[in-house]
Simulated assay, not measured.
Amino acid sequence: MTEAIAPSPIRVFVVEDQTKILKNQLRLLESNQDITIVGTALSGEAALEEVPRVNPDVLLLDLGLPRMSGIDVTREVKARWPQVEILIFTIFDEEDKVLEAVKAGASGYLLKGTPADKIIEAIKEVRAGGTVIQPSLARRLLRHFRVEPDSGPVPTEPVASPPAPAAPEPPAAAPSEASEPLLKPLSNRETELLQLIAKGVSNSEAARLLNLSKATIRTHLEHIYRKLEVTNRVEAVTEGIRKGLISV
């Protein structure tokens, strides 16, 4: 009888410019048998030199690096080695940078100070093809999404433009825009999953809560992305809120 082969540990590379924080991260992670630390770097430039040599599965990347930013590193890594998944470490006041990192190809983000078990869970999640959104920061990001660049916070009900002559025009254009998502409506299950995503639930947690397999969750996510014409969780939640499909 052939013995089952244990899965190989996930190869993790850590990029952090603060040596004290780096040592603490390594201390938290090195004891877990499901991952192995294949390298570290104190700058983005050093990381780009080391990544092709150590071939990591997941890059734990500090967003606030000197000189070359975490966003730039994310963009370069995904362009050169798209198979490497990237998890961003961030702080509360970096919402705009987190958005840019996600657009550049990051698979998720964690707040600095996240417990070791949550970091390990996030590493496994992105390695399996998932995306990580922490609830505490997700709510801040979603509030950010609800702010128009020129007009401030968007209220619950649409408001016509201030100039009187222009007021009649927005309602005329709205029906075609509002009807667009109706051409590809989300199923009840997809809407339910999207609402969970907005709360920061991982693929694994969603599978447990909905009593579905992880593969089914991934399939539902693919359908959601295609119907909303987005490429990741953050964009999906944004579109879901803008189109009134979910609430936060």
Rank of each mutant, 00 (worst) to 15 (best):
P170K: 05
V154W: 09
R67C: 03
V159Y: 06
G44S: 06
E235S: 12
E45R: 13
E3V: 07
I197T: 14
F145P: 00
K20G: 05
T216L: 08
G108L: 01
V248D: 09
S202Y: 03
N32S: 11
A116I: 03
P171K: 08
R189V: 10
S161M: 10
T131N: 12
P155W: 06
D34N: 14
P181T: 06
V58Y: 01
P135R: 15
D57L: 07
G200W: 02
H144G: 08
P56S: 09
E157Y: 12
T74I: 08
V14H: 03
I133C: 12
V58F: 02
I35F: 06
V77M: 06
L212P: 03
V73M: 04
K184V: 07
K214Y: 07
Q83P: 00
A101T: 05
K112P: 04
D34V: 07
K97H: 13
S179K: 12
Q25L: 15
D34P: 00
P82I: 08
E190W: 08
T216N: 08
A101Y: 05
L111W: 06
W81M: 10
E169P: 00
P9M: 03
D34K: 14
V132S: 02
R75A: 14
A174F: 12
L209I: 12
P158D: 08
P135S: 15
E235G: 08
I21V: 15
T40I: 12
L142K: 12
K124G: 02
A215P: 01
R143Q: 12
I86Y: 01
P170S: 05
G200E: 02
D117P: 02
Y109A: 00
N203I: 01
R226N: 13
T19Y: 09
H144S: 11
Q195H: 09
D93W: 04
L42Q: 14
E45Q: 15
E95D: 09
P168H: 03
L28N: 13
P52S: 08
E125T: 07
V98W: 02
V234Q: 06
P66W: 04
A178G: 05
L111Y: 07
V98M: 06
F92L: 11
I246H: 02
E95L: 15
V14L: 13
G240H: 03
I119D: 04
R226K: 15
K78Q: 13
E85N: 14
N188W: 07
Y225V: 00
K227R: 15
E45C: 05
A138W: 01
A206W: 00
A128K: 02
V154G: 05
G70T: 04
Y109C: 00
P56K: 04
T191E: 10
K118Q: 15
L22R: 15
A166I: 09
V54P: 05
S136D: 14
L65C: 03
I119S: 03
L186S: 03
E190C: 02
V132A: 00
E121H: 10
D93T: 13
Y109R: 00
T90Q: 03
P162M: 07
L59R: 00
K20T: 13
P66V: 04
T238C: 11
T219W: 11
R53C: 07
L194C: 01
A101C: 08
